[in-house]
């Protein structure tokens, strides 16, 4: 994973992609107990908006000889999934990322509050479980989380999810 992170950072520094942040299961693992996951999810802000935001990535990895495997790109043998920041919440999450350190590499990771908010927004059962774990782990600043939810129109959705959790 260390070498994959180095390559991803090189892509950012070379202008292939804009700012990045680790999301998904690896980001959750940074804050709470390890979760079974198979990809390194990288949220990124495209250099240019348009229909082909993944094009520059595919061209770059093609030149470097990194093969594709389903939705992931095998970078130095490690499956990486590039996810363009698909709405304002995710873009904000990328801009507000914090650094994690893995072996010799520092890389941005989505903050716990944004990870929880994105999970509320996505709303699958595994996302609801993730929010519960993040909150239980006391890694989420509740007032920051509430502000993010309010800003992105997710407060009502969160209240419904909380209601379901309390009913169980």
């Amino acid at each position: 994973m260390e070498n994959a992170l180095i390559v991803v950072k090189e892509m950012m520094q070379s202008g292939i992609i804009g700012p990045i942040a680790i999301g998904g299961g690896i980001a959750a693992t940074y804050y709470i107990e390890p979760v079974l996951t198979y990809d390194l999810d990288i949220f990124f802000i495209p250099i240019e908006d348009g229909l082909d935001v993944l094009g520059p990535i595919y061209r770059y990895v093609g030149k470097r000889g990194f093969p594709l495997q389903a939705e992931a790109i095998m970078i130095e043998g490690f499956p990486v999934q590039f996810i363009p920041a698909y709405n304002e919440l995710v873009r904000e999450a990328v801009w507000n990322a914090v650094d994690l350190e893995y072996r010799s590499v520092k890389a941005p990771v989505v903050r716990a509050e944004y990870l929880a908010a994105i999970a509320v927004q996505t709303g699958r059962s595994k996302d609801r479980e993730r929010v519960a774990r993040l909150l239980e782990g006391e890694v989420v600043n509740r007032s920051v989380f509430d502000e993010i939810l309010k800003k992105h129109g997710l407060s009502e959705k969160w209240r419904k999810i909380e209601g379901i959790s309390h009913e169980k």
Binding site: M1, T29, Y31, E33, L36, L100, Y102
Partner: peptide, 17 residues
């Protein structure tokens, strides 16, 4: 148990994955 696992170094957590 989840609290203990959460407190492990990140590198160890990746090994657990």
């Amino acid at each position: 148990r989840r609290r203990l696992l959460a407190g492990l170094p990140f590198e160890r957590k990746i090994e657990i994955i």
